[in-house]
Structure formats: structure tokens, C-alpha cells
Design a protein around this nucleic acid. Structure first.
Lengths: 249, 249
DNA sequence: TTAATTATTGCGGTTTTGTGCAGTTATTCG
DNA sequence: CGAATAACTGCACAAAACCGCAATAATTAA
């Protein structure tokens, strides 16, 4: 088993169960605990997980308890949120993924807006519920504790039957050649279906995710209609995306 | 169980209930009291809680001028919660409604419990998500903002396909002749289906709701298997229900 | 292709950490 | 005050982390 492969597996396990034990992983992958420990060390340095004595924890696990501490690059996300919120018109059906950027957007929605929001993300749903004039539809299925979103065949089937006006995706990696990518297989599936079920696709991301890659493919650049970052649209980083025909805000 | 994980759990419990007892925690997590004490010591040094003789207090608790307002009803619900939580065995599929009593139950679940919880109640789902070993399934559909639960045909259809071991209902009115009743039509529909989809039906309610009525019928007394209140089972108010063949805890 | 270089992995020995236990001291409460 | 309970102390033991090194695998250079 390749090192990259192994680390991807570890990461997947962490995202799935919120914790992993070194001893268990070592037994599962049949490598020494030292190797596992070194992997955890590296992944921890990359900020992908939190290493603790005996194993590792998912980052979101700690978010629960340290709630309200410093949300990662919140200001940038606020800017994105406001640009995104401006796209939504009264009466629209809007499909959204999870992720902190999307939650910021939910908070930025003007109170007068009358629209229907559909999502499987629990924190996002909580935000939508706060708004006086928004109709909220929850996608059901198994809850991923780490992503705080519902995932699975049922969720995918449900989204397939939707025909939304807009789809907002919080994305973790976008590249001009490879399109958007994800590190969780199930969430990638969900996002694919969401794209298929919407008239227009809006990708929201902070600029540091631009020109980065993750293992699992979601969609090509040509599938994206609008790209929103915290940068001004004439920023040189964004030029290739504009040239590729994407509307950049 | 990892140390960090344990401390996160303790912190969660403290923030939830405003206090924890070392002895209780030690029993719940199945570690020695010394370990708990050391955890509390560390958490206290980090300023996450206030350590006191016998346990710890939440930091916010001391700030707030002690308002013994709804604490009374809270304690009653805690008693109910603990009785209810004791019914759940490892590996069970448990269907739950919404309501504050059910949420208290969710909080009272021992961390070692391994089970699958199915619900449409958003606050309940949030609680289930906190637990390390619980699989969570969310029922999707339109979100009722005031009940914070998903309601509608889709939710009903989904519940119909479930065959759960246990069903916990937080109920607002129960009467020996008229059974349980509700004031919201859609929620009544949901509860009816939930009863049909479960092997055993457990009703949880504070005693003041006993022998009261609401407009919409949910089920008859004969449909209920277990009734849980904060009162001891030999309480005279409960006698008629025992005579009707319900197991009263 | 072969040799040189580098990266990755496993292993033995040591150090650190986490946990429980026994005995002692301190605190609470009737 | 005195019994019960909790906290502290020191210690022992196991598990995990760490360190350096050698063997192996992968990559690069000649």
C-alpha cells in the first residue's frame, strides 16, 4: 500500500468516525505503529487532523467543544457570503452544500428574502431556520458527524428529484484543468448530484483554495456558472477562470 | 476512549447541565475517579470549567445570577431522561420524536452506548451527533420552524419504511380514556406513523400533562407499551395506567 | 542499465504519558 | 465532633511516543 493511499485512507477514517486509534489502524493496514504515527504526524502538520496520544481526532470534533473560538478566515468568508447572498431572488429554490462558507452565506441573507432553501447540512439548516421568510427543506439520511451533513443513497435520490434555480457549493479545491475536487467520496457524490439538479451552479471558496487539488473529482470548470471568492473579480489569479467562461464575482 | 475525547465529553456535559459529579462521570465513562479528577484538574487549569469538591461547574453558571426559574421542570425531565435512557440496549434502532423531554434523554445517553437513532427533530439530532458511538439518521422533509422538526408526506413515507426496536415520544397530553393527544395536526400524523413503525412505544411526559387533553388524537392507551414520568411508579396518579396494562417506570 | 542518492519503513531501546491503586489527608454535613 | 466522602500523594505498570539506525524501496543520475 502506497504512502499517499494509506494517508488518504486514514483521513477518510478520521472523517468518518471522528477518531482513529493508532493501534487499530496499524493492525488494519498491516504496517507498524511507527509508520502510522509518522503518517498522523504529517497529516497533523498539514492541518488535516488533530494528533493525540493514542491516535487522532477530526478537526471538526474539536470545533464542537471549542465552539465560537476563531472560525477559520471568517472575514474572507463574510465577503464571499455577501456576494453570494446577492444572487438570490425572491421565490427561488436554492440547493446548498455544507461548509463554513455556506453557513456564513446563510447568515448574510437579507431578512426580507423569500425563498426556499434545500440542504442536508445541519448547521446550514439551523441558520436558515432563523430567517423569517425562508422555507426550509431538509434532506434526510445518515448523518456524517464530521461533516455535519446527511450522506448516502437516500440523500442522493432525494436531490435527484429536485430542480433548483441555484446551487451553492462550498468547495475545498479548484483547479483550472481538473475542476473542483474533494477529499471525501460521499460528499463528492452529493455535490455531483447537486450540480446536476440545478439550473445554475455557484462555487464559493476562499482564494487560497484556488489552484489546489484533492483526490476525488467533482466536476469540470465548464460545469460551473459562477465563481465567488473574497478577491475582486479582476484579480490576476482569477483571470484563467474568466477566460474559461466562468462568471467571477 | 481517548483522553481528549473524554475531556471533550466532560466539557460538553458541563456546558449542558452546568454541573457534573466526578462519581457520576466516572461511572458513565467507566474510568476511575482519579482519572476524572485529573481531567477536571486539567480542564480547570485551562479555564474551561470550575472545579469544586465532588465535581465541576460550568463557568457561565457562576456569571449568571442564579435564576431558579425553569430549573424545576428541568430536573423532572432529567429524571425522565435517565429512566428512558436505561431502556436502550446496544445495537438497537431507536425512533424519537422532538420535544424538550426527548432532548434531555439524548443528553442522558451514556457515552458507551452503541445504537442507531432516527429522528426528524433538529435539536435532538444535534445532541445525538455529540455522542461518540451513536449512528444518526435524519428524516428529511420540510422544516417546521417552531417545532424544529421535519414534517410532511416525505417524512411520513420515510418513517413508514422503518422498523425500529423502540420509539420514544415526548407527549403533551395523555388521558386514560382518550389516549395521547396533540395540538398540531402534522406532528400528530408523524407520531402515529412512528408508533406503527416500532416494536415498542415509550411515552415520556412530566406528570402535569397526565389526564389532560388536546384536540388531535394520536393513539389509544392500548398502543402504549411503557410510560415514563418523573414520579415513582407506585404514585397514585399512575395507578389507572398500570391497570390498563402499561408498564410504568 | 547500473550506480548513487534519497525516501520510507521496521526494530530495539529509552523516555514520556496515562491510568489505577493504596494509603493518607482534607472537606463536608448531620 | 465524627463518619462518610473526596482529594492528594507516591508508586507501579502498561501503552504510546520518541530516537537512532539499518534494511529496503523508490528515484535520480551517470
Amino acid at each position: 500500500m502506497l504512502k499517499k493511499e494509506r494517508q488518504a485512507y486514514i483521513l477518510h477514517q478520521v472523517n468518518l468516525h471522528n477518531k482513529v486509534l493508532s493501534s487499530l489502524l496499524s493492525h488494519e493496514i498491516r504496517v507498524s505503529e511507527d509508520t502510522i504515527r509518522r503518517d498522523l504526524q504529517e497529516l497533523s502538520e498539514e492541518g488535516k487532523l488533530i494528533k493525540v496520544h493514542g491516535g487522532a481526532l477530526s478537526h471538526s470534533f474539536n470545533d464542537i467543544t471549542y465552539s465560537g473560538l476563531s472560525v477559520y478566515s471568517q472575514d474572507q468568508k463574510r465577503i464571499i457570503a455577501e456576494k453570494a447572498a446577492a444572487l438570490i431572488q425572491n421565490g427561488m429554490f436554492v440547493l446548498t452544500s455544507g461548509g463554513t462558507t455556506i453557513i456564513e452565506m446563510a447568515r448574510a441573507l437579507p431578512p426580507s428574502l423569500r425563498a426556499t432553501f434545500i440542504s442536508g447540512s445541519i448547521p446550514a439548516i439551523l441558520e436558515y431556520m432563523m430567517h423569517p421568510n425562508i422555507e426550509v427543506i431538509m434532506i434526510g439520511d445518515r448523518v456524517s458527524k464530521n461533516a455535519k451533513i446527511t450522506i448516502g443513497a437516500e440523500a442522493i435520490a432525494k436531490i435527484k428529484n429536485i430542480n433548483a434555480d441555484l446551487c451553492f457549493l462550498g468547495i475545498n479545491a479548484i483547479d483550472i484543468k481538473r475542476g473542483t475536487t474533494e477529499n471525501d467520496w460521499e460528499i463528492a457524490q452529493l455535490k455531483k448530484i447537486m450540480i446536476d439538479s440545478s439550473q445554475k451552479v455557484v462555487c464559493c471558496t476562499i482564494s487560497e483554495k484556488i489552484n489546489t487539488l484533492q483526490p476525488i473529482h467533482i466536476c469540470n470548470i465548464s460545469d460551473i456558472d459562477i465563481l465567488i471568492t473574497e478577491l475582486p473579480p479582476d484579480s490576476p489569479v482569477l483571470k484563467p477562470y474568466i477566460d474559461a467562461g466562468i462568471q467571477v464575482l
